[in-house]
Amino acid sequence: MGNEILLKAENVTMRFGGLKAVDQVDMEIKKGEIHALIGPNGAGKTTFFNVISGIYMPTSGQVLFDGQDITKLKPHQVTQKGIARTFQNIQLFESMSALENVMIGHHTRTDSTVLGTMFHTKKMKEAEWKCYHKAEEMLEFVGLGDEKETLASSLPYGKKRILEIARALASEPKIIMLDEPCAGMNASESNDLAQTIYKIRDSGITVLLVEHDMKFVMGISDMVTVLDHGGKICEGVPDKVKHDPQVIEAYLGKEDEE
């Protein structure tokens, strides 16, 4: 693991009217690590994700990716730069097959134009095949090799989450952001998921993960950041975070309250 910083958030604030959903958060994610972002409900984790992936433009602050300022980029431009994500509430292309879903993930890396499509040029066909093989490869990678032709809408819940990961990976990202990837999964499914996340890390892709399941997070993360009420309250290796009084307080409440 190098010490190179891949993604850096500086002083990011996101305000919705009077509510500060994210308040002056600084965060550094090193290349090649599995970095978890945790916090109680409403802590601003998903908002922070949306800021990084370009869905929200932060009220103030900056997001740097690989040294470049990506704060003002649109979501599709952010993906182009090499940031992929999944969604907390699954957002698949329901009426399309699993394979087509993953092929769409490869969109930014597919090199074909409308004119090429019209005249069925050789270059366009090659690009299409490359896209097809990439999608196949990604489905195999996450263990959905047998579900190629299955409609996304008819996949079971756990597999839908996995398909989202395959789709995100197909965009050949440098960092993948997983928003509650094991929500609603049973123990064996989340165990498989952990293996998949290790595999992703080992293939050189940095992982940023939002998760509620503490056992899961503490088991696989190299680094944990804790948010509460939009602000960062703790950051460090899992063992340190686990015993931090502020974190315990945020999750369990103050002793002398009431």
């Binding site: 969604f87 292309f93 969109h107 690009a127 995100a168």
Partner: peptide
């Protein structure tokens, strides 16, 4: 084609489509 898949992605889930670089 790539364009057709992108069109269907836009219809199915616009936010996800944008997150896929469309």
């Amino acid at each position: 084609s790539k364009t057709g898949r992108a069109m269907q992605a836009v219809r199915n889930a616009p936010i996800a489509a944008a997150a896929m670089g469309i």
